[in-house]
Design a protein around this nucleic acid. Structure first.
Lengths: 140, 140
DNA sequence: AAAACTTATGCAAGCATTTGCAATTAAAAC
DNA sequence: GTTTTAATTGCAAATGCTTGCATAAGTTTT
């Protein structure tokens, strides 16, 4: 709980206003123990402060992405999920058959990252990738 | 031109009906020289056969995905793009700054694929991946 | 502390895509 | 060749997310 101080101070450092709406979005993300969706954030925010629009949630998420404070990952299921950068990066293997999600350490993709930088001079953002496929069970 | 015979025969082999709508979607994909979007397919289809609904286009694309005849790739820009599987797989490095797209040979990810299979028993679908990041120019 | 400027929000409309349902079409059974 | 059954479509509504615009709130200048 209450690890949102970091996100909040980063925002104000950079000259952004700490509106009530933003504070609520920030603490919803910081206090969540999983990869949270915009809809889930919105539900938490509205519970405390009813007159907030969901577009404000999306705009705040957009800001946090631009400032590299949260990562955005599409884990399937039709909605994108968010995770604070300072809680560590990792990747996900998503089974398209049963929906199982296997967490993967960041290091698994680090050689790919350096390969792309060396051969293509491309700085890949591989902080939070979802790789789709089939897990052992579903691959029979 | 006219490489859609393959897609069409594959569909009928598997017992699916070859409706006019499907034929038009199929030939739009097969005759396109780039990664085509649903909206582009729809425009081509409607030009020849006006009473087609866009949901039919999406449903046909869905069918083709399930049958592994086309791949779906999110290259950014808010819409997903489609490509026939038999025209070869490759990956894309997408620059989030300038939008440049660098094509990447399939082989670049084959060692990752075998690693995931060996270590995690996960059969990753790495046929047509988009990796986001920054190209040389935009990375200053 | 009022005026001028900038930032952030709410609202409504828009976009790409999906889905439920009823109507149409084709295939299978008789 | 009807009847029964199943597959496919169109339509309209819904979903997740984005955007334009007017209002509101906060900053800066004077």
């Amino acid at each position: 709980m209450r690890q949102d101080g970091d996100l909040i101070s980063r925002l104000s450092e950079q000259g952004y206003r700490l509106t009530p709406q933003r504070m609520l979005v920030l603490s919803a993300i910081a206090n969540s123990d999983h990869h949270i969706s915009a809809e889930e954030i919105y539900a938490q925010v509205v519970a405390k402060y009813p007159y907030v629009n969901i577009s404000t949630v999306y705009r705040t998420l957009d800001l946090l992405k631009r400032l590299d404070l949260v990562t955005e990952t599409d884990l399937g299921g039709g909605r994108v999920r968010y995770h604070p950068v300072d809680k560590g990066h990792h990747h996900h293997l998503v089974c398209q058959e049963c929906g199982a999600i296997i967490d993967l350490d960041e290091s698994v993709l680090s050689s790919l990252q350096s390969h792309l930088l060396r051969e293509y001079k491309f700085s890949a953002d591989l902080r939070h990738l979802a790789i789709f496929g089939r897990c052992t069970n579903c691959n029979q």
